[in-house]
Design a binder for these strands. Sequence first.
DNA 1: AGCACGCCGACT
DNA 2: GTCGGCGTGCTC
Length: 792
Amino acid sequence: MQTNHPFTYQIPEKFQDFLRVGMRVVVEFGNGNRKIQGFVTGLTDEYSGEHQLKSVIDVLDLNPVLSDEAMAMADWLTQRTFAFKIRCLQVMLPNAMRASYRKTLKLTGKIKDPALAALFNEQSEIEFNPQKLASTQLNQIEKLRKANQVEIVYHVDDRAKSKFVWAFKAQMSVKELQTVKKTLRKNAVKQKRLLDFLITNHEQEFVQSDVTRENNFTANDLKTAAEKGWITRYQIEKYRNPYQVDQVQPSTSKKLTAEQAHATDAVDQAINEAQAATFLLEGVTGSGKTEVYLQIIQHALAQGKSALMLVPEISLTPQIVRQFKARFGDQVALLHSALSDGERYDEWRRIENGDAQVVVGARSAIFAPIKNLGVIIMDEEHETSYKQEDMPRYHARDVAQWRGKYHHCPVVLGSATPSLESRARAQKGVYQWLRLTKRINGKALPQVQLVDMRQAGRYAPTTDISQELATEIQKKLALNEQVVLMLNRRGYSSFLMCRECGEVIKCPNCDISLTYHKDTNSLKCHYCGHEEPVPQVCPNCHSKAVRYFGTGTQRVEKELTELFPNVRILRMDVDTTRRKGAHERILDEFGKHHADILLGTQMIAKGLDFPNVTLVGVLNADTSLGLPDFRASERTFQLLTQVSGRAGRAEKEGNVLIQTYNPDHYAIQYARRQDYEHFFAKEMHVRHQGGYPPYYYTVQITASARKETDAAQKMFQIRGEIVNYLSQNAVILGPTPQSIMRINNRYYYQLVIKYKNEPQLENYLQNLLLTSQKEERNGLQIVIDRDPMNFI
DNA sequence: AGCACGCCGACT
DNA sequence: GTCGGCGTGCTC
């Protein structure tokens, strides 16, 4: 916070002509004059402040890497998310363009100490990494530095390096080449061949390595050809090609249903009229949302505009990518986390240069340097992964709407199960509401059956698999069809549930599940701070089977192999997908039917499309219901609806089995019927009662410190202050300790404010950031999160 | 984040 | 009188 403002530097004469806002520079900073990377945020002819100005050391760019739009967006983001400006600027750029800082030790005198001499090992400059050195060594180095024997040198490395390749093109005219050909020696076969090649392929540009390989020329042949003036050779930028999607078959527009056509037309019209409108495209699974997206993008391209398509990280699978590449070919640029820094940088450059007009990517792709935007599409709009969980804590949806306004282009939010916030806005007419109610193949949604685990528990073959599910799996295996099993890992073992009656222990004040704290063996409410000891018996049915809840994919896998000894199982969870491309490989294996059962966590719920899958089983629907979060029902409903959509995508009928301890819960009941509308109505009622979004806005303030009392005290102090700035209508929840109260020996306390219209709040919060800087020295950290997604 | 400075206790 | 640890303030 102390450095969260611009610093003024003098521009040396040599940079004065071309230095512009949005460029990266290297400057000296601080007492030690270490070199750091900075961004030019403004230029002025005069300086009247009292500071002694330092000079810009170096300029890293020939052209601004941050456009005017990016600069404006960073300003807005800083305000909106209570983040540091520098973080907002950095989030706009690919990692590779963020400098890496290095320190080296440079020898300027003679070293006598043998230990230090060994460290230098005859070299005059070595890497300097204070953490890796013993304190005695550091002391010696410090002495040497004071005696001017060694010097610490700071480096700023720009890691953004483009790859270049040689290319060439005929320089002489066809006629000239033919005359040259006649003057050649009789036995100059190769040169003749080259000339023929140039004559037949006149006007074309070639990459040298392609030609030498395919036509048996050498690099030297081309070099001499260039010297003789037959061709010109030059370097062109080569982009690394991520996701080598093996030669996709180009696809063409499919015929739209009436509903699809209506939706497409509405957005197309907004594109034509350059309207910054937001659309909510609500379409049941299998209603052909993707084709609508594709045609909208097509339309934008036809208008000479570009398009930005956001997809949740988890569903950015080759299957999805292939669909876009098939329709738009090389115009597509892909941005997602599995890319290496180099690949990401190349894609970024392609977008910036205008070589790619369609950007497909996950959350951070919303900042892609795309120009002339015609439309922004956000698929699976309700996904919580669109919210970044660290600074700057932005929601891609908000950024999308900001950019929509800036570019005067529509924003399309698509989902089968929209977030309550979006759906409520659509209903109010803030968003334009487009609906796809029918499935493309005309098939009914798959049959969903609930298995009541309270009953099933007594005769189930294993802890996690009921008799019903086991029988159903057996049937499908006999038919040589495939099965997807999902283990809901959300809320893993953090709440208490009765195995007999399904009762989840809730807070008497908040109607939110209590969270189990192992350290104190107690239950705490993270909303109001209520605390009670862990009950010995269930308060509802007095059974002793009160457990905290949780299970792992490994255990289920073991159970499955016991039940079905010869079955081939693929496991997909964070453990098996950590390596690059693993995700893809597992899905590919399963698609080729190299396995009968795919067992995984949430990640299998999204966007997979396997025609041979006829059974989807959900092992534990309840875990996400028990989360101490007012969005628990919404998340559970969304997850179950989504995973149910995975069954019977093609010719074969599919069915879905959901194992649950709460078969009567409305989220599960409505998910069973795939009934979003009734779920929405019911959940809106619940939110209204509790005073939660979308009826109220929320802001979460978190304090953390080494000492628990420091964090708690600060939060109570903030609470005391904040009441003076709030009206009667606002509600303050907490302060309460967070469920994982201690992470890395830091204690976390939080406070949530629910409000509708509080003009003073914004000011208070901005001010809080400023004033909390003093305490930050003592290790106290304050984080403000607007519209938080996680309350845990 | 990272550096320097200054205060203070420990040690020569 | 000196060294080193640690808290505090500053960075154009």
